[in-house]
Amino acid sequence: MIYFQVLANGLVLGGLYACIAVGFSLVWGVLNVINILHGTFIVLGSYIALFSYNLLGIHPFVSVVTAGAALYLIGHAVQSTLVNRVIAAPVLMTLTLTFGLDLLLNNLMLVAFKADYRKLVLENPLGQLEIGPVFMPLDRVAAMGLALLLTFLLYRLLRDSRIGRAIVAVRMDREAASLMGVDVSRINAVTFGLGAMMAGAAGSLLSIVYPISPLNSGMFLGKAFVICVLGGLGSVPGAIVGGLALGIIESFGAIWFGPEHAVTISFALLILILIFRPAGLIGKRGFE
């Protein structure tokens, strides 16, 4: 019976993981840029939620909007002023650039917010959800629901809106999109902004689950990597599948092998999947 509880934990975690990874996957898929800043963007979103709650009493679920908007602006600015300059350079260059930016931003956050782990404690938790043998705090379930809703909204945006279609077009063929009149460098900036927005929103939701510290950025980045490889790159359904898969694998791995091996398992899995199924578990290269 414990397995139902473990599975439920994994699913809730997985929904949040999907939201962590979808922005990272979008940037990687469309721009061919590995955004090392992603983890730090997530932590920044958590801090926005923390300060909004502690100083202004705004619930983290509401801060999703402000954190998302703030991070969109930062992401848009970073891409249009810095990353766009070297977007055509080899992989190593863009990776190194975002690594440098991450060192910079993460260090500034350490100075501004200190390395202490802080916890956002909700004064009026929503209580417990109880289905048969499974117990789950309602706040977490709601956070997962919101995370999946946001991910779904991004999916609709990419499918239905004019800007979304332009992003998908750039993803498919940069030159052809440019010839069709798409302003590629603007689309790049919007895409990077959307990736950062999802990171900020995810960070805001995660603030009620994880302790908050700039030191966590590496952990979130690592998870985003694993999920992208699990689910396949640049597709929203891939990120959801990868996120849920990682959540479930981590939960069961912690039960069977002990929590200290959770990281080893997920990274070993990552290497194995890269060797045997480089296109991800779903197996097709997604464009949406």
Partner: peptide
């Protein structure tokens, strides 16, 4: 802030001395 300065240097390196 040594990591930040190092990060700034890396950024400058990529942008100006590729």
């Amino acid at each position: 802030v040594h990591a930040a300065v190092l990060g700034g240097l890396i950024v400058a390196l990529v942008l100006f001395l590729p």
